[in-house]
């Protein structure tokens, strides 16, 4: 069913369009003046100015080191297994490969690659990691000349990840164990 909209008939001035034109010119020139002389532009000039990201922003996943500067990752390959787009590829050290560079760890990955073209920033790797060795950080723009450059290797991931000042799980466990050796137990 058609609906009839009751519109008020236009007055003489409204029919002339001229007051409306004047009003329009006024609005536009006000905006032009504001953006020219009062710096009221809403544009953010991207590469120079960037967003302030929220604290829990989930950007690209990087490997982190602990406070002592040693690799946290123990090459358990859980993240590789859980990664939905299969962006992570871990090469384990093998039988007689390089040992871990810290105590309480058997091994560390020989190579750890994340394909940033595949990564969907879902955060599952962070969630699944038993060693808290991988964290989604605040980087969201990756620039490269070709596709192979977008595959970040272990060295690069560790350099980008930096140290993570959170819990040092094994250090804590060690302290607990030491405490248990003396009697009575103080926890």
């Amino acid at each position: 069913m058609a609906i009839t909209v009751n519109r008020k008939p236009l007055s003489f001035w409204e029919k002339l369009y001229l007051p409306a034109i004047a009003g329009g010119l006024q609005v536009t020139i006000k905006h032009a003046y504001g953006s020219l002389f009062q710096g009221k532009q809403v544009t953010m000039e991207y590469p120079e100015q960037r967003w302030t990201l929220p604290q829990n922003y989930r950007g690209a996943p990087y490997l982190v080191k602990d406070q002592d500067g040693s690799t946290k990752c123990v090459s358990c390959q859980l993240c590789e297994f859980v990664c939905p787009p299969k962006a992570i590829r871990i090469t384990p050290p093998g039988q007689d490969g390089q040992a871990a560079d810290r105590a309480n760890a058997e091994k560390m990955p020989k190579e750890f690659e994340i394909n940033m073209l595949r990564c969907i920033y879902c955060g599952m790797c962070q969630e699944v990691c038993p060693e808290e060795a991988i964290f989604l950080q605040k980087d969201w723009s990756h620039i490269a000349h070709n596709r192979s450059e977008m595959i970040y290797n272990k060295e690069k991931l560790l350099a980008l990840g930096g140290t993570h000042g959170g819990i040092q799980k094994w250090k804590h466990k060690l302290e607990e164990a030491k405490a248990q050796e003396s009697f009575p137990v103080k926890v």
Binding site: I29, H31, A32, S35, K40, Q41, T43, E45
Partner: peptide, 13 residues
């Protein structure tokens, strides 16, 4: 440029 200013933008720069 003028369109940018009117629309609170910056324009080609």
């Amino acid at each position: 440029k003028i369109s940018a200013w009117i629309q609170d933008r910056v324009g080609p720069n």
